[in-house]
Design a protein around this nucleic acid. Structure first.
Lengths: 337, 337
DNA sequence: TTGTATGCGTTATCAT
DNA sequence: ATGATAACGCATACAA
C-alpha cells in the first residue's frame, strides 16, 4: 500500500505538504496541490482509515444496533428496508455502516464497549429490547445515538407514528361504514400501547363503543397466534365484528385463513386490515388493506439526524421526529352502508 | 477513554508490561497479569481498534458487498437472511461486519479502494452484478474474498445449488405424476442458466419431452411478469401444462392470480411450484410447494471460509462449496396418476 | 509557501 | 520478569 511518505519521496516534498495537498489546503500553491494530487492518484494512493481515525478521533462510521437474538430483526422486511435506506443515506454522507453487537471476541463486550472499541461516531438503535440495561447504558453514554420507534429523554428518536397510524385505519374503516371494529394487537410492547391509544382515541371520536371482547392479544409476525385470536373472537358467541385489524400483514394472513375456516368470506362477511405494508401486501389477491409504514424515511431520517448531531454537537438538542405512513387502499375492506 | 498508559501509571509498571498482561503473555508473572487485568477492568479499559489495527495491519472486520442500486438486494428475504446468519457467524468468530460500497465520501472510491481504505480483512460478495469491473477488480486483488452464488476461478464460492434444486423439483413433480411441466424462469442470469440446465437434465432423465413453448422468461421477484408469462402460456392454444415452476415464491403468487383469472383452479387444474422458500410460503394457504434455499448455511459458510482463508493464508486454495436446500412439501401440487 | 517534529494508542523488538 | 523505545500512517502546531 502506498502511503503519504511514498508520495512525498516521489514528489520531493515533505509528508506535511502532501497531507496538506490531499486536503486541498489553502496554504499551498495551486500547482503544488495539482502536482501532488496527480502523482498520488497515479501511485494509487488510498488513505488509511485506521491511521486517520487514530489521529482525528473520528472514524466516519456509524454503528447500527439490531437485536442479535435467534431471530434477528433483520429478517423482518420492516427493519431490513430501514437498514437499506439507512445505509444508502449514510454512504451518501461519507459514513460507513458497521454492526454493533455484544459478542465481539470472546471477552463479551457490552454494546457500549463495542461501540467505543470501534470508535464509531454514533449509533442508530433499532429493533432491540429498549429496556435492556446495555441499550440504556449506550444511550446515556457520550456516544451520539438515535433510536427508532422508542423515545429516551436524552436521545433523538425517529418514530413511526403508531398512534396516528391506528387512527388513520379507524378513520378509513369508519368511512367505509364499519362500526363493529375488532383489534387483534401484538404482544404488549410500547408500540402496541401506542396503537391501542390510537384505537381507543379514534373510536371515541366517532362515538363508537369498543366491545371489550373485540380487543385481543396476538403476537407480531405470528399468523398462528392471529388465527387463534381470530377463532376465539368468532366463536365467542358474541356478534361478529364487521372488521378486524391485525398486528401486521403477516398476522393478517393467518387471520384470513382462520376466518375462512370459520365459514366466513373476506371481505363480504368480514373485512380485514393489516399493518406495515410489506411488499407481499401488494402482491396477494385480494390486495391487503393496510397501513404502509414509511420505512425508507425512517432509516434516512435516523441517519440525517445522527450525523447532524455528530457534526454539530453544540447546537444539538434531542428531537422526536414522527414519520407518517399512509393507508393502502386494498381489497380486503368492504363498503357497508 | 482510559488507555494502556493510564493503566501503566496506576499499576506502576510500563506500558509494555500492561500490553503483555492484557494479552496473557507467558513472559509475565501470573500475579502481575492478574493484578494488571483486574485494575484494567476496574478502570473500564477498552482497547482502541484503530490503534491496534494500525499496528497489526489487521482489523478483525470483514466487508460485505451488496449491490447498492435503487432496489438493494437487502430487500429480498433471501439476502437479508444470508446477511443475518453471516453477521452472527462473523461475530462469534470475533469479526465485525461493515458494508462496502462505492460512494464513500465524495471522491468516488471503487469497491477495492473502499475495502483497502477500511482495511477490512476480507470481503463477502453477494447479490451484485458479478460482471461489474469493480467487482472483478476486488476479487483479483490481494484482499481475500468469498462470493455467494457465483464462481470466479481464484475465489472461494458458496453456491446455492440451483441445478440440483431444479432437479429435485422436477423429481418431486414427476413423483406426483406430472409430465407436462412448464418452467417460467427469471431473466437470463447465471443462476437462471443453472436452473435451466437442471430442468433439462432432469426432464431428460425421466424421458420427458420438453415442449419449447413451456419454457418462458419472467423476471425474479416480479409477480406481474410471472402473471403475463402465465397467461401467455395458458392462452397459447397449446395444451395446458399440469404443473408450472416459477422463478421464486413471489413470482408464483402473481402466477396463481393469473391462473385463477384464466378460470383454472390450483392445484386441481394446474399445480404450481415456487423457489426460495421464503417465510410467506409457509404462511399462505395453500402452503406453497417450493424449493427452500438454505440461506442460513450460505451466510455461515461464507464467513467460515473467508475467515479460514484470512487466518490461514498459506494453506488456502479456492473452493467451491455447494449448499443444498430441500423441497417444501406444500399444497400447491396435486397428485395425478 | 513549505518543512520539522510530535503524538494519536498500540504492539513488538530488544535491552536490562 | 520487566522496561525503554520504535514503529504503524496520518494530521497539525509551529518553525522556517
Amino acid at each position: 500500500m502506498v502511503k503519504i511518505k511514498d508520495i512525498a519521496l516521489k514528489c520531493g516534498v515533505s509528508t506535511a505538504t502532501v497531507s496538506k495537498a490531499l486536503h486541498n489546503s489553502s496554504e499551498l500553491k495551486e500547482e503544488t496541490i495539482a502536482y501532488i494530487c496527480k502523482t498520488a492518484k497515479e501511485m494509487g494512493y488510498i488513505p488509511n482509515a485506521s491511521a486517520r481515525s487514530l489521529k482525528l478521533k473520528k472514524t466516519y462510521s456509524i454503528g447500527i444496533l439490531f437485536v442479535d437474538q435467534t431471530s434477528s430483526g433483520l429478517r423482518h422486511e420492516y427493519f431490513s428496508s430501514i437498514l437499506d435506506s439507512l445505509k444508502v443515506a449514510a454512504e451518501s454522507k461519507g459514513y460507513d455502516v458497521t454492526f454493533i453487537s455484544k459478542n465481539i471476541t470472546n471477552n463479551n463486550m457490552t454494546y457500549l464497549e463495542h461501540a467505543r472499541y470501534r470508535n464509531v461516531d454514533g449509533v442508530v438503535i433499532a429493533s432491540v429490547d429498549f429496556h435492556d440495561e446495555q441499550v440504556i447504558e449506550l444511550v446515556n453514554s457520550e456516544i451520539p445515538t438515535v433510536t427508532i420507534d422508542y423515545i429516551y429523554n436524552n436521545s433523538t428518536a425517529i418514530m413511526s407514528d403508531n398512534t396516528s397510524g391506528m387512527e388513520k385505519l379507524i378513520h378509513y374503516a369508519v368511512s367505509r361504514g364499519h362500526k363493529k371494529i375488532a383489534f387483534i394487537h401484538g404482544e404488549m410492547t410500547d408500540v402496541t400501547n401506542k396503537r391501542l391509544a390510537g384505537f381507543y382515541k379514534a373510536m371515541k371520536e366517532y362515538n363508537l363503543k369498543v366491545n371489550p371482547n373485540y380487543v385481543l392479544e396476538g403476537r407480531y409476525h405470528d399468523p398462528k397466534a392471529a388465527g387463534q385470536a381470530t377463532k376465539k373472537l368468532l366463536n365467542s358467541g358474541e356478534e361478529i365484528p364487521s372488521c378486524i385489524i391485525y398486528p401486521d400483514d403477516v398476522s393478517l394472513i393467518g387471520g384470513e385463513t382462520a376466518i375462512q375456516q370459520c365459514g366466513y368470506k373476506i371481505p363480504d362477511d368480514i373485512s380485514v386490515i393489516g399493518y406495515d405494508g410489506v411488499n407481499i401486501s401488494r402482491i396477494l389477491r385480494p390486495i391487503i388493506t393496510t397501513y404502509v409504514q414509511n420505512s425508507d424515511a425512517l432509516g434516512k431520517l435516523a441517519v440525517i439526524n445522527l450525523i447532524d448531531r455528530i457534526e454539530n454537537p453544540n447546537t444539538f438538542t434531542p428531537k422526536i421526529v414522527y414519520v407518517e405512513g399512509s393507508v393502502q387502499d386494498g381489497e380486503t375492506v368492504k363498503d357497508i352502508f
